[in-house]
């Protein structure tokens, strides 16, 4: 029962889809197609990412991550965070479990905010696409402004939120 309860939003939406299917079959069909495709995409992308996160959790020592992303890591931390965030593919919610792991291993809040911001702004695999469809000027403004903004936000958030405060829920445990 508890397990089913976690799927309640999914079932509510499914009910909504059923209602739409009665009114307009074409829209329902596109929904099923779009949803099916994105679910397949996710099922394809998620397992390797979670396996890597699981491995990192076991193998990376807290001390070494603090050196790369801790409070005193400086410019090194910026580059390390940036390369971590821009290489990975996928929507931002995949980055949440990764961010929690980094926090757990001693990364500072500043770089976590910067990591999430960079993840949602710069993606090396799609950079070419942004460049060709919106032009170099647009792309450059987007990237430079985004990164500077999120770095400053990170500094601000670091003052507000402590590391421990953000670690209330451990995602590697069963809810």
């Amino acid at each position: 029962m508890k397990k089913l309860k976690r799927y309640r939003f999914f079932f509510i939406l499914l009910l909504g889809l059923l209602l739409i299917a009665f009114m307009n079959q074409a829209i329902a069909m596109t929904t099923v197609q779009l949803t099916g495709k994105s679910i397949l995409d996710m099922l394809f992308l998620l397992p390797p990412i979670f396996i890597l996160v699981g491995l990192l959790d076991q193998w990376i020592k807290k001390e070494s991550l603090i050196r790369y992303m801790g409070e005193k890591s400086g410019i090194y931390g910026v580059f390390f965070t940036l390369s971590l965030a821009t290489v990975a593919a996928g929507p931002l919610y995949i980055a949440f479990p990764i961010a929690v792991l980094l926090l757990k291993k001693g990364a500072s809040v500043r770089y976590i905010v910067f990591f999430l911001g960079a993840w949602s702004t710069v993606k090396l695999p799609v950079l070419v696409y942004e460049f060709t469809s919106f032009g170099p000027k647009f792309t450059l403004i987007h990237i430079c402004f985004g990164l500077v903004f999120y770095y400053l936000t990170g500094i601000l958030f670091e003052k507000i939120y402590g590391q421990q405060k953000l670690l209330k829920a451990d995602i590697t445990k069963e809810i």
């Binding site: 939406l13 779009l34 949803t35 919610y93």
Partner: peptide
């Protein structure tokens, strides 16, 4: 981790599809 995010993910996918 996969097990924990799955219910939310399925709902999100369906919502975005809609």
């Amino acid at each position: 981790m996969f097990h924990n995010v799955l219910p939310d993910l399925l709902a999100i996918m369906l919502f975005v599809g809609l």
